[in-house]
Structures are given as structure tokens and as C-alpha cells.
Amino acid sequence: TTITITINGEELRIRGDHEEIHKILKAWEEDHNDEEIVRLIRELAER
């Protein structure tokens, strides 16, 4: 699965399995701050 998210003008492409993507979207849905979401995404992007 690949998704693209733009946060603060920075486009981040994430490839991951369903569970990893779900974790990010769940954090977003629960209204975590952008920095935390960006950190989760970067961790995935670095793999």
C-alpha cells in the first residue's frame, strides 16, 4: 500500500503494510499533533 500525505507543504509518500498505514491514519483521526504524525511517517519512510 502506498499513500501520499502533504503536511505543512511537505509531501510524504509512505509505503507500508495495512497495519502500518492504519496506525498513521488512526493517529491522525485521534487528532494527534502534526509533529507526532510526521515522526510516524518518517519512521516508515526510512525503512
Rank of each mutant, 00 (worst) to 15 (best):
E20I: 04
D31H: 12
L40K: 09
T4Q: 06
H22A: 12
R42M: 13
E20D: 08
E10S: 05
R15P: 08
G16K: 03
H22I: 04
E43N: 03
W28F: 06
E20C: 04
A45T: 04
R15V: 14
L25T: 03
N33E: 11
I37K: 01
T6V: 13
N8L: 08
E30A: 14
T4S: 09
R47M: 15
E36P: 01
E35H: 10
A45Q: 05
I3L: 11
E35D: 08
I21T: 03
T1A: 12
G16W: 08
R42F: 06
H32I: 10
T2M: 14
T1Q: 13
K23D: 06
H32D: 10
E10K: 09
E19N: 10
I24C: 02
L44W: 13
I21Y: 03
D31W: 07
D31G: 13
L25S: 02
E46T: 03
I21G: 01
G16R: 02
H18C: 14
R39A: 09
E29K: 12
E46I: 06
D34T: 08
E36Y: 09
D34P: 12
G9W: 04
R15N: 11
R47F: 15
N33K: 06
R42V: 09
H18Y: 15
E43P: 00
K26G: 06
I37Q: 01
W28Y: 13
H22V: 13
I41A: 03
I3E: 02
I7K: 01
I3G: 02
T1H: 14
E11V: 13
E20P: 02
I24H: 02
L40C: 05
R47L: 15
L12H: 08
W28M: 08
H32R: 15
I7M: 07
E29H: 09
K23T: 11
W28T: 01
R39T: 08
E10P: 00
N33G: 11
R39S: 07
I21S: 01
L40N: 02
G9F: 04
E11F: 07
L12D: 00
R42K: 15
N8M: 11
E43C: 09
T4E: 04
I41V: 05
I24K: 01
G9K: 02
E20A: 04
H32S: 14
I21P: 00
H32E: 15
L44M: 13
T6C: 13
E35K: 07
E30D: 13
E43Q: 04
D31T: 06
E43H: 04
